[in-house]
Design a binder for these strands. Structure first.
Length: 794
DNA sequence: ATAGGGTTAG
């Protein structure tokens, strides 16, 4: 696709993209960036504990390497072949008559009719009514088609009919085959429903179920699909167990199936999802007969530095660079995704300098390959297209993200503007990552630029971006309230450029993006010129201006509304962002409304969702509704349990409240208790409730769902513990009974001994309020006489 | 042309 040269005026001010000097110029820029960084030398001097994890395998693979097709460049560096495209077995156009294609819908209809007819005849009706069934192949193709379209339910319904038909038996019936199950399971995984895939597996091997597959018929591909389920679930033990079963053949799930490179790569993917580098390295050590490929190394690199704590090398991306060198030396060619994983590992370690180093290495590889390619082609210089690696955009995106999230937004922007000059166009993720970084840094003018770029290039914002916009919108408003205002001059400039009429633009996504533009603009200007929209331009905005102009919540809802209008399905994170906005505003009614919408959309609220409800109540200082929300959360899961059998329930079937959620509940109670307007009876009742909850938490009270709390987690949560202490201290002020007072004293004393209150950390000082509470608590716990006098003394 | 694996934004 050709790009409009006009764009360069806004986004690529450096110049025309096809000129070679630009290429050079960018390299210089990036080189300068890297040189600037003081910590650059660190990597070279640093060697990882296991610098050559493949050492054992190298001996073996030297034979393989011998046959590996390589190109020698002038630099005497071994290069992999440039024609990287998978050599696929090409089916020669056979002489047989072409099969008549039948659409998935037709298959569906034909199967329905044939099944109905079969059911009728089996009840003793006329056999002449029988209709022909579609072939298994056609059914499988239809399943694949529905699955690819994301309509899993439709595919599953079709599959159900196949099973029903199979129950009647007969040769003309499309009985599910291994391919049927494989097709369905792969589609379920593709749409992140690994649990559905696993249930299909159970159905597949269930004896006496119609269309079951005998265990010995299961092949490596099917086993790999099962492995992929565990990968998506980040379940390393189960994945390892499956591998073991495949090797030994004595397990309950699969027959003996020699694992292949796909099996190992999928297992490595499981390790990546779990962030378990040690497990990943162990897998590689046990890959005997399989030569690792690009994907092997890519997964490994993506596992580096995923966990924040634990053993050595965890916060250090150097292993990823070691792996890169190693794969190159073995003639395995890194691609854009490999570099993306490498660069992202640097980003995770907060090392934008190393991320840029990774990008530069990629550019060097690119230049080398381009050169050898042009030499191969000889003097055919007509090819104007810029040479790129496959999937290069991911590497740029990761680099932009690494810089942006580290606060180096100027560098991030420079990379963004430079990429087209390297023949790589930004995508939704590139733009979404960048705008999130920009908004985080308060750079609204630049954000608008990116939004305009997206509009011009037809890049549709994803649900991730909407969530980011909603989340950041609040932060921007907060910054505005705090007086950390943005450069209004810059704003005026951009806004002037952008004020084109809507009328002559196509309706659809392009129009939607204008609203976001206006939205951000209105956020920045919010409060100052609150009712300055011209109603003719946009009815949606005009309607909402009847609300208070500086109402952040309205704006967040507006983004949400716009997202739905644009046809993007909000996901759990979107709803949670919305709930968060409600919580901040203390708008419990809207929060409940959002919750209803979530449930209507068949999304399962998670801990964050429930916590937002609690926090909304806390913000309102409304203990009643906080307790009500808690109970609602605890009881919700019960309804969920017996729902449709083929819906993939999210990871949590029941709400497992986190300690932070408990903190939200407690702070709602204590917030109301502190209200001066309430009666002292009410106050006592509230403090008593907190103390009562403490006991119930310790006992794991089932009615409150406290049995699902992780007690260790609760007692390690400083905030929770402090809140409990506050409740006890509050109650002690009203307590006259010496026996009960003494037991409270005991409780406070035992809490004070908890580790989370006794950390001797020089770098972290407790907030003043916390220290004050602690001082009071210490005084109370030591006091023998009535507390009132003592505390007032202090 | 009916089935398998890698990366990046909230």
């Amino acid at each position: 696709m050709r790009r409009n040269p006009e764009h360069h005026g806004v986004f690529f001010p450096i110049g025309s993209i096809h000129r070679f000097p630009l290429f050079f110029f960018i390299i210089l820029i990036i080189a300068a960036q890297i040189k600037q960084s003081t910590s650059f030398g660190h990597l070279l001097s640093c060697s990882y504990r296991q610098p050559r994890i493949f050492a054992k395998n190298n001996l073996h693979f030297s034979f393989v390497n011998h046959h590996y097709n390589t190109i020698r460049t002038t630099d005497n560096i071994t290069q992999p072949p440039l024609n990287y495209k998978k050599t696929k077995t090409i089916h020669k156009p056979n002489n047989e008559r072409p099969r008549i294609t039948i659409s998935p819908e037709q298959v569906e209809e034909q199967l329905k009719v044939a099944l109905a007819a079969l059911q009728q005849t089996s009840r003793g009706e006329d056999e002449a009514k029988l209709r022909p069934f579609p072939s298994v192949r056609d059914c499988n193709a239809a399943l694949a088609a529905f699955g690819d379209a994301g309509d899993l339910l439709r595919a599953l319904r079709l599959f159900g009919k196949m099973r029903k038909a199979a129950a009647y038996g007969g040769t003309m019936v499309p009985t599910p085959t291994l391919v049927t199950y494989s097709t369905l399971m792969s589609r379920a995984i593709k749409f992140s429903k690994p649990l559905v895939a696993l249930r299909l597996w159970d159905l597949m091997i269930q004896k006496r179920s119609p269309g079951a597959i005998p265990m010995e018929d299961i092949d490596v591909r099917a086993a790999n699909i099962r492995m992929n389920c565990f990968a998506k679930l980040a379940d390393v033990p189960k994945a390892q167990n499956l591998l073991q079963q495949m090797i030994t053949g004595d397990g309950p799930d699969v027959p003996r199936l020699p694992p292949n490179i796909v099996t190992y790569n999928t297992l490595l993917h499981a390790c990546q999802r779990a962030g378990d580098l040690d497990a990943a390295l162990a897998v590689v050590r046990h890959m005997h007969h399989c030569r690792p490929d690009t994907r092997t190394y890519t997964s490994l690199m993506a596992t580096v530095a995923r966990q924040k704590s634990a053993s050595a090398g965890r916060n250090d991306p150097s292993l990823a660079f070691v792996l890169l060198d190693e794969m190159k030396s073995r003639g395995i060619r890194p691609n854009g995704i490999t570099y993306s994983a490498l660069i992202d590992a640097c980003g995770r370690c907060r090392r934008p300098d190393l991320a840029l180093r990774g990008l530069r290495i990629m550019l060097m590889q690119k230049a080398q390959e381009a050169e050898s390619l042009s030499k191969m082609k000889g003097n055919q210089n007509s090819n104007k297209a810029i040479y790129t690696l496959p999937d290069e955009v991911g590497a740029w995106t990761a680099a932009i993200n690494a810089c942006g999230k580290a606060g180096r937004i100027q560098t991030a922007l420079r990379l963004f503007r430079a990429m087209p000059g390297f023949g790589v166009m930004p995508n939704t993720i590139t733009c979404g990552s960048l705008t999130d970084s920009l908004l985080r840094a308060g750079a609204t003018a630049e954000t608008l630029d990116v939004l305009r770029y997206m509009k011009k290039n037809g890049i549709v914002p994803s649900e991730v971006m909407y969530t980011s916009l909603m989340t950041r919108a609040e932060r921007l408003a907060k910054m505005e309230r705090d007086g950390k205002s943005f450069s209004m001059a810059a704003q005026a400039h951009v806004v002037a450029l952008d004020s084109q009429p809507f009328e002559d633009q196509p309706i659809g996504d392009a129009r939607a993006i204008d609203v976001y533009t206006e939205l951000i603009k209105s956020l920045v200007e919010g409060g100052r010129r609150s009712k300055d929209y011209s109603p003719g331009n946009n009815t949606l905005l005009a309607e909402t201006t009847t609300a208070r102009g500086d109402d952040v919540l309205v704006k967040v809802f507006l983004v949400f509304q716009e997202m739905k209008t644009a046809g993007t399905m909000p996901d759990l994170a979107c709803y949670n962002a919305l709930l968060r906005a409600c919580a901040r505003a203390g708008d419990l009614d809207h929060a409940n409304d959002v919750l209803r919408q979530m449930l209507a959309a068949d999304l399962c609220p998670n801990d964050t969702s429930w916590r937002q409800l609690l926090q909304a109540a806390a913000q309102q200082k409304n203990s009643e509704r906080a307790l009500q929300a808690w109970k609602q959360g605890v009881e919700y899961s019960k309804e969920r349990k017996r729902k449709r059998p083929f819906k993939d329930e999210p990871n949590v079937l029941t709400w497992k409240p986190s300690s932070s959620s408990l903190a939200a509940l407690l702070s709602a109670l204590l917030a109301e208790a502190k209200e001066p307007s309430i009666s002292s009876e009410k106050r006592i009742a509230l403090y008593r409730k907190v103390v009562e909850l403490y006991d119930k938490v310790l006992l794991g009270d089932e009615k409150m769902g406290f049995d699902r709390l992780d007690l260790n987690d609760v007692l390690e949560n400083q905030r929770v513990v402090i809140l409990f202490i506050r409740g006890m201290l509050g109650l002690s002020d009203f307590e006259d009974d010496p026996v009960r007072l003494e037991s409270q004293r005991l409780a406070v004393r035992s809490i004070l001994e908890l580790e989370c209150l006794n950390q001797r950390d020089e770098t972290y000082r407790l907030p003043w309020v916390v220290r004050e509470t602690l001082n009071k608590a210490v005084a109370f716990s030591r006091a023998k006489a009535p507390v009132h006098a003592k505390t007032k003394e202090c």
